[in-house]
Design a protein around this nucleic acid. Sequence first.
DNA 1: CTGTTAGCGCTTTCAC
DNA 2: GTGAAAGCGCTAACAG
Lengths: 344, 344
Amino acid sequence: MGSDNHPTMAEVATLAGVSMATASRALSNAPGVAPDTRQRVLAAAQQLSYVVSPEASRLATGTTGRVAVVVPHISRWFFASLLEGLEAVLREADMDVLLYHVGDLHDRRDFFERLPARRKVDAVVVLAFPVDEEEQRRLALMGVAIIAAGGQHASYPYVCIDDFAAGRQAMDHLTFLGHRRIAMIETYDPDQPVPPAGRSQAYFAALADAGIEADPELVETTRWGGAEGAAAMDRLLSLREPPTAVYAHSDEVALGAMRSLRRAGLAVPGDISVIGIDDHPLAELTDLTTVHQPALGQGEIAGQIVLSTLRGDEIKRAVTVPTKLVIRGTTGPPRPRPDRASGR
Amino acid sequence: MGSDNHPTMAEVATLAGVSMATASRALSNAPGVAPDTRQRVLAAAQQLSYVVSPEASRLATGTTGRVAVVVPHISRWFFASLLEGLEAVLREADMDVLLYHVGDLHDRRDFFERLPARRKVDAVVVLAFPVDEEEQRRLALMGVAIIAAGGQHASYPYVCIDDFAAGRQAMDHLTFLGHRRIAMIETYDPDQPVPPAGRSQAYFAALADAGIEADPELVETTRWGGAEGAAAMDRLLSLREPPTAVYAHSDEVALGAMRSLRRAGLAVPGDISVIGIDDHPLAELTDLTTVHQPALGQGEIAGQIVLSTLRGDEIKRAVTVPTKLVIRGTTGPPRPRPDRASGR
DNA sequence: CTGTTAGCGCTTTCAC
DNA sequence: GTGAAAGCGCTAACAG
């Protein structure tokens, strides 16, 4: 169990009848080696099934060939998809991905204090992970490139969607359908210092543009999650005058809201319309209207940014990918109300 | 951007007024260093904000402090959860996680041929990833410990659920409710050489135990996925005599089936009952009856197995974690039929 | 308890 | 084009 006896480059060199220097050049296909000499070395390596020792090679060169990926959540679809896209392009470039899950504030503090990835990577990618100033200072200590994905960032190159625009796509769809009493289930992450506000601002802006006065009662703020979304919806339903439509910051939350509606015996979209953001795979299965965002794609672009940064290309510092409204079965025009206000 | 000038251990030693050997011992808190000497070294390191060079350290010791995790899917809940659990315990032990996504057959071939993790890790964990014989031979070349999680394995220590038992829990629930015309939506992964058969066997065994003759028409085999589940359900619905209950191999597939039922205007569980396996978070939101399996927990156990194996403890080679039936709103007794067969 | 001294396996000037 | 030799930064005997 681990008693391996890897051949060394010296052995390969000997077998090929060359010096270590030449072997090294041939193996890393550096220039300045006669074609057939290179062949001989390669053959020898093959025969010994030789693999360079990364540690030794790294020690000598100073680069690691690794990038650290810091994620606040692993099992949520959006984050996992970002990670998947990122891993794909990094692996393509033969870089290894070191995974750091920083779930709660404790992990977070620990990560930035100990900087466990220090000296182990050439770059670090923070996935949908707002980094505050102090944390930025700590990261800077690592002396490597930092890239952000899935969220805008002031100090680092990044790729993300326009949260405000996405929110507007959702809200405008609702107002276009004729809804005027629209609720928002706004989410925040207690373990994130700075919640991105774009999706919330979009709510108020859309309302204003439609000439609708915002009613504070209609804004529910909760932690992210299906159960949380359900609870928020319950509260919304207990209002004297419940909304005719609900805009949730994410699909999972919207699905939670739908459970409450189902349990309350309300029809969707007959009684209430629901819209989310993300286009989670399960949104399609549940016929949820939503705003699509390319999660995998953002991860891939992040990977490209990492690569070009490392290469020193220094191009595209900020990429914003488009989102798209996907109308499915949970939104429709509001039911003409039995005129509860004026009647009787 | 990468122009770092990390202090070396020699500098720390000098600052602390000791030899490098002592510095090394103190830093790696090895025994045999006077308490106050150790303190001085630590202080010096702190002051210089020194961090050991992993490459150098590794080169000297021969261990890497890393483990490779090979996963066939990243963004599916079950795999991501396994990964999350695994990462947590590994990180706790200060080991780094190298992520290798082996999505399709091409990735797969490439992974086992090039063995990109070779010499980079102390162990590799295959997550819900059947490894065939030839691949095992390749892995053996790495000369490190191999652990399997989320799936049974003949040659490696593993942690998993009992698929047959889980399937029985689902099926027995259905037969207990009185269903006799039960369909199965069986899934397979075209990129996996060996599909685990436990969940399917459970179907036939349960049927036999309930004295029900299996009807081949009622078994739909499809790739994993929501859309696939929906399509399978559509086929089932077009049968002369559709099932009164459906047992799906996984929740996502079950949710797909439910979409078909919804679109067909059928009531669940009124007209047809549906049950899945996994207890995906969204199962709760959709009121799906299912069989719970601890995904995170399996990942954690896998991590412990890795750790103890590396430590040489050589305990628990095979762990099977229990599953549990979770009855929610998609299963119920079959509707007493209008007696289509004898009637008229 | 502490210091000296070899390497760990590779890359890289610098000569030839 | 190729080889000799000097490290890269750390650990691990082995003495003291």
